[in-house]
Amino acid sequence: MTALALRQDGPGTSAVPGPRRRLLGLAVALALLAVLLVLSVMIGSTSIAPSVVWDALFHSSSGIDEFAIRDYRLPRTIVGLVVGVALGLSGALIQALTRNPLADPGILGVHAGASFAVTVAVGLLGVRDVQGYMWFAFAGALIVTLMVLALGSTRQGSSPVVLVLAGVCIGAVLGGAREALQLTNPEAFDAMRYWNAGSVVGRPLDVVWPILPFFAVALVLAFAASGPLNAMALGDELAAAQGVQLVRTRALSVLALTLLAGGATAIAGPIGFVGLMVPHVARWIVGPDQRWIFAYSILLAPSLLLVSDILGRIVMRPSEIPVGIVTAFVGAPVLIALARRKKASGL
């Protein structure tokens, strides 16, 4: 789908589309997302007639199928939407912040922190359900990201390269400790096999509501930072000359992206690639303006996640493939094709 949207908008960075076309594109992306939301409720590993779906959503009937819609399909659709928005925006933020096209929210240690915390919760503390270990994941992601920032920052602020290296270091140390813990504790290993795949199944909505306020705050921060980030794309000195407060902008962006990526990982487990790929695609469609990149990422990322989740339900019926696995299969070919088509797209 993303590929289709792209082709309409043509050659990319060199010819930035005008505001009207960008708005039109945004409307198309919104419509696409709406269609996918409906499909996600309609399609599943069992076939349920549309009329039953309608009944389940708008009447309080109580057959097995109605329960299936209300208890499973609707929640996973909402989870997919929320997690997708968070991943897309956090990816756009980190790429803007580090000016590094390789940057993924995972690179700042979000995934490593969350995985490590969950392994400790599962392996040493015996926590078993998603409601229990989700807060460990959230806390782990936040703490580790702060550690990465502390390690990767100098008084003048943080150089993107050092930040990335710091993320890799801490991620590696925690990853090694986590692996050691898992290899010596078969049960923790077993429990983590699935969590590491990233999935939106079986997350009851009451694990999502408490995270939403964090996301709302992050959303506001991200758009507040988008203007200054635009200026910083031209270089720190130029931005400072235009009166941008570098330190404050960085702090706001980092706070926002940590909340977003940490929350998404807490809910769904580590889903890689969405945060890496979607902002690239958004940039290739709308050019370098961060506000537009943010807006497009917010719509395209949940679309990628929902498409992947729907595919994951039907390609191997009756069993399902976790969405974290499908996203790479859907997204990677698109990314490779784009990388071949475009001239080198630096930031």
Partner: peptide, 30 residues
């Protein structure tokens, strides 16, 4: 740069495949 981007794409794909194979496997084999 293109080498890096393509490498990331392909690695992500294979990484997913690996996770999938691990999930499908028996605990001891995994």
């Amino acid at each position: 740069f293109r080498l890096i981007i393509v490498g990331i794409g392909v690695s992500a794909l294979l990484g997913s495949l690996n996770t999938w194979l691990m999930i499908k496997a028996d605990l001891d084999q995994a």
